[in-house]
Structures are given as C-alpha cells and as structure tokens.
C-alpha cells in the first residue's frame, strides 16, 4: 500500500519535469501555432550549454544556468528571426520540415562537439537529499524542487501572459495576427520574443534534466514526445493544463514502470492516446480556437 503511495507521489513529481519540458512548447504552440520538432533537441542543447558554462568557468549548475539563459534567449530569438519566421503562413509543411531538419542538425552538431558520451550536471549533495514524510516514505529534494519550479514557471508565464502589455500582444497576435498588425504589433518580433522566452524555459528544464539524469545528444526526440503529449493532454494554450498533462504522463510512466520496468515509456504513450480518444481537444481546451 505504502509503495503505491510512493509510486504515485514519485509519478506526480516526475510530471513536474515533463511540465517543464512542455511549458516552452506550449508557449510556442499557443502564440504562433508552430510545432517545433526540434524542441527536445533544444532542451539537450541547453543542457550542454549549462555544462559548458560549468566546465569553462568552474561554477555550479545554478550560476551556469544564469549565464547560459540569456545566451539561449538570444539563440531562440535569432532562430525565430532568421529561420522560423520565414516558414510561417505557408501551410503545415514548411515549419514542420524545417524544425525536423533542425532537429537532425542539432543532434549531429552536439555529437560532433560533445561526443556520444553520457553527461550529467553535478549539483553536489542536493542530488541525493530527501525529505522523510513517514517512516518508510521519503521524497527526494530534487524531484520536489523540480515540481516547485514547474509551478513557478507556469505562474510566471501566466503573469507574463495576463498581466503585462507584452502578454496582451502575445494573446492578440495568437488570436488574429493580421489585426494585431493594425494595432502596431509587429507579429514577427512577437514570435521572436516568444521563442526567446521559450528558450529560457527550456534552459530551466535542461537544468533539472541534467541534474536528475544522464543526457547525451540523442535523447532530444524522446523529450519532445513527452512534452508534446503533456501539451495535447492539457489542451492547447492552457499552461495549467500543460502541468496536469505532465503529471498524467509522469504518473502513467511511474505506475507502468512499477508493474514492469520495461513498460515505463509505453505506459506514458498509451495514457496519452487514451486521453486523446476520450478528449480529442485535451482536458482544458480554450473556449475559442
């Protein structure tokens, strides 16, 4: 019995990590309907960026993140400005194929630069620290911190979207980019800005990914799929929905793994398809779309 409570707790907390993976994707989905197939690889890129900052400057992961985040913001902005903006408004195919190509470029460039070795961001004793809830029930500090960060990121994104002038412009552009231009909103600049913000969120996700588990240049696509599933389960355009989606995937994976360790990933995918069949538009769809 207690082991099941433990499993469910672990699963929900794992969902926090997936929500972090998904939040950036959700942001991009929401504003420009762009499905970024390179999202997972961008997370891995961010993890390597943090790793590089750590080794080059001899600093801890958090400081390294603070150094890497602005750089990643610029990378995101430039990527959108120079490449992805050219693909928008030309149908489904160009953005999909361009980001798919980008995914392959990123994976192989990282392989070239960092080899296929597994890496980790070492954060010291905090990695193994845990909080005892009951005699036999403890939760890791890192998973807890990850979950708290996911909640914080989603709160921050909601504040950005619903309490600031830029957020208003984000939503207006998402609703009707032609009319938004009549308001003096340069939609291409908005998109670039959004991708920059998404890359900062991606950097946060990468920080936790790198501390909690090994990573190598090839693990991006799997993270993309988890993130995508969380976004679709939650309903497009809803950040809290994305958190719920992440938790559902996390729960399904942990429960699946408890039954049979080989079923972990499979269970997550199947949970996704079950939700998709029952609620094609996700659990918290936007009223207008």
């Amino acid at each position: 019995m207690l082991s099941w409570v433990d499993t469910i707790l672990q699963g929900a907390l794992l969902g926090g990590l997936y929500a972090l993976f998904a939040a950036g994707l959700s942001l991009i989905f929401g504003i420009m309907r762009l499905v970024n197939l390179a999202h997972g690889d961008l997370i891995v890129l961010a993890a390597f960026a943090i790793l590089s900052a750590m080794t080059a400057l001899g600093v801890g992961p958090v400081l390294a993140f603070l150094i890497a985040a602005p750089i990643l913001f610029c990378i995101g902005y430039a990527l959108q400005h120079f490449v992805l903006n050219r693909t928008l408004g030309r149908g489904v195919l160009p953005p999909l194929l361009v980001t798919f190509g980008l995914s392959i470029i990123l994976q192989n460039a990282l392989l070239e630069g960092f080899s296929a070795d597994s890496r980790r961001l070492s954060a010291g004793t905090i990695e193994t620290a845990s909080l005892a809830l009951l005699n036999d029930l403890a939760i890791g500090l890192m998973p807890l911190l990850t979950f708290a960060s996911a909640v914080a990121v989603i709160l921050a994104l909601n504040l950005l979207f619903y309490r600031t002038a830029v957020g208003r412009a984000f939503r207006a552009t998402s609703d009707d980019s032609e009319i938004a231009q009549l308001m003096g909103i340069d939609n291409r600049r908005i998109y670039s800005l959004a991708m920059g913000v998404a890359m900062v969120v991606v950097a946060i996700a990468a920080l936790y990914l790198g501390i909690r588990a090994n990573f190598d240049p090839t693990i991006g696509p799997a993270r993309l799929l988890y993130a995508f599933e969380a976004v679709i389960i939650g309903g497009l355009g809803s950040f809290w929905g994305t958190l719920v989606g992440g938790i559902i995937i996390g729960l399904a994976q942990t429960i699946g793994a408890k039954i049979n360790p080989e079923w972990q990933i499979l269970a997550g995918h199947i949970a996704f398809f079950i939700v998709l069949v029952i609620h094609p538009r996700g659990l918290f769809p936007r009223a207008i779309d």
């Binding site: 939503r171 609703d175 308001m183 003096g184 909103i185």
Partner: peptide
C-alpha cells in the same frame, strides 16, 4: 499605424482572448 492612420476592420475582429478593456488598451500598443 504608428504614423497615425488607424483602421476599424470590417466585421469588428476583436481579439477573443482579451477582455473589453484589454482590447481597448492594445489599440495603443504601437
């Protein structure tokens, strides 16, 4: 629009995910 020509489009085309006040405020974004 920045130079001072504003348009009321056919069919109104308000931003559905913005409130009334936000729809008004967005008009002076540029």
């Amino acid at each position: 629009v920045r130079q001072g020509i504003a348009m009321i489009p056919e069919g109104r085309r308000l931003f559905p995910s913005l409130t009334v006040e936000e729809n008004l405020l967005i008009g002076r974004y540029g």
